[in-house]
Amino acid sequence: MARVKKSRSLKGKLGKTGTKEMHKEQKKARKAANPTRFDAKKEKQRKEQAKKKLERLGLLPEPEAVQQKVRPKRFTFTPKVDETAKKVDANVSEEDTVVNDLLDAFTEEN
């Protein structure tokens, strides 16, 4: 009695009874499925191995410096202006101008 290999896919089960459309649907489903952990791990290992080989041969391009993105400022600091200080400065400047005008007037008359 011959031993039959167990198939994990439906292709083996549908080999005699399945239609071409069913095979196509199965193939689409297999391609659309997320990769297994094993496949992802192997793919990562292959990429690392390829990088190492290029590095050994000196063909690996120089890595560019990665610049961090500038975060937009949501709030800008505006210093609080003291109104009393403004008034004092205005008064002092007005007094200075008045005094200067009076001195100029006296000096012109003499």
Rank of each mutant, 00 (worst) to 15 (best):
A2K: 06
K5S: 11
S7Q: 09
S7D: 11
R8G: 10
S9D: 04
S9P: 01
L10M: 07
L10D: 06
K11V: 09
K13A: 14
K13Q: 13
L14Q: 00
L14A: 06
G15W: 04
G15N: 06
G15T: 03
K16D: 13
K16M: 06
K16A: 14
T17N: 04
G18W: 00
K20L: 10
K20D: 11
Q26E: 15
K27I: 14
K28S: 09
K28N: 08
K31I: 04
K31W: 04
A32S: 05
A33K: 04
N34W: 10
N34R: 09
T36Y: 01
F38V: 11
D39G: 04
A40E: 12
A40P: 00
K41E: 15
K42S: 09
K42G: 01
Q45R: 07
K47D: 09
K47R: 13
K47Q: 14
E48D: 13
A50C: 05
K51V: 12
K51P: 00
K51H: 09
K51G: 02
K52R: 12
K52F: 03
K53G: 03
K53R: 13
E55Q: 14
R56N: 11
L57D: 15
G58S: 01
L59D: 10
L59T: 02
E62K: 10
P63E: 03
A65M: 05
A65E: 14
V66A: 04
Q67G: 02
Q68R: 08
Q68A: 12
Q68T: 07
P72M: 03
K73H: 05
F75Q: 09
T76P: 00
F77S: 14
F77L: 12
F77I: 11
V81C: 03
E83D: 09
T84A: 10
A85R: 07
A85Y: 03
K86L: 15
K86Q: 08
K87A: 15
V88P: 03
V88T: 07
D89T: 12
D89E: 12
A90R: 08
V92G: 02
S93N: 13
E95R: 07
T97R: 14
T97Q: 15
T97S: 13
V98A: 15
V99M: 07
V99F: 06
N100A: 14
N100W: 05
L103I: 12
L103A: 08
A105R: 08
A105L: 09
T107K: 11
N110W: 12
N110C: 14
N110E: 15
